[in-house]
């Protein structure tokens, strides 16, 4: 829109953007190369094409039930986190966007403060609390612990989106005799759909990549793939480049799919909300 009008005469290619994209993509490409060649080859020489081409690393991962379960565990608690976060953040965001109430500014600030708190600070008490509640090693425990970080950002993003919807829309609907619930679900929710996508993206950004709490809260049944991967990737242990790369590639796939699916919503979504 603005961009096309602004530079319609010029060739629409920026060298800086291409160079920056290459800077981002080349390491990822190399990671794929490493995952597709035997560990020995990765340890002996630098190559830009998998040589020899081999699927043994992926075969190992898919042949190990623990590793497959770890992958499923991570997907499960991230999905759970997104659902819980949206359920609790939406009404709160609506309240902050539409009303002033006792302590509303302070509450918003405190929610922000929690986003700034390193997970390391609350790790031990969170583990003690969840074990007292008998929730250790469950997907729910990790999803709830991650909510501490995803809920504040979500409230914040959604508040922007709700504020951008004219309040007159709701007032007119109310005069027309729609119930508050009908107004919320049939009128407001469709208006802020891109906001829901952007919020889900931000929950994913945190929950899928976080490992400190996920590691501390799980032992066997809910252990995510990232923690299992430490065995072959951590500088403390013996590194297996091939398997670590294969797991890494598998862990990049959901993110890549999400980035592709949301490519139109991400930037537009933000510019619609009041975040900008």
């Amino acid at each position: 829109m603005a961009a096309s009008q602004n530079s319609a005469s010029r060739p629409r290619v920026s060298k800086s953007v291409l160079l920056y994209s290459a800077f981002l993509l080349v390491p990822l490409y190399w990671l794929v190369v490493l995952s597709l060649q035997p560990n020995k080859a990765s340890k002996s020489a630098l190559s830009l094409l998998p040589s020899p081409l081999s699927l043994e690393n992926f075969a190992f991962v898919f042949g190990s039930p623990d590793w497959v379960a770890g992958y499923v565990n991570a997907v499960t608690y991230v999905a759970l986190n997104v659902v819980i976060t949206l359920l609790v953040a939406l009404p709160a965001a609506y309240a902050f966007a539409r009303f002033r109430f006792l302590g509303s500014e302070q509450a918003l600030f405190f929610s922000l403060l929690f986003r700034l708190m390193p997970p390391a600070i609350i790790m031990i008490p969170v583990v003690q609390m969840f074990s007292a509640a008998g929730l250790i090693d469950t997907h729910l425990a990790v999803a709830l612990a991650h909510c501490l970080f995803t809920v504040p950002v979500s409230i914040w993003i959604l508040e922007g989106f709700v504020s951008a919807v004219p309040i007159e829309l709701e007032e007119t609907a109310a005069i027309d005799g729609h119930s508050p619930a009908a107004i919320f679900f049939r009128i407001l929710l469709p208006q802020i759909r891109p906001g829901l996508f952007v919020t889900a993206f931000f929950c994913f950004i945190f929950s899928w990549v976080e490992l400190i709490l996920a590691n501390a809260l799980t032992t066997v049944d809910a252990k995510p793939i990232g923690v299992i991967m430490k065995v072959v990737a951590s500088p403390v242990g013996s590194v297996h480049i091939g398997i670590a790369s294969a797991v890494s590639v598998l862990m990049l796939i959901p993110g890549a799919a999400l980035a592709w699916a949301l490519r139109r919503h991400l930037a537009r979504g933000f510019s619609m909300g009041r975040v900008t």
Partner: peptide
């Protein structure tokens, strides 16, 4: 978006 969604490990 790719690097943003890459697990830290």
């Amino acid at each position: 978006g790719l690097p943003l969604l890459a697990p830290w490990i």
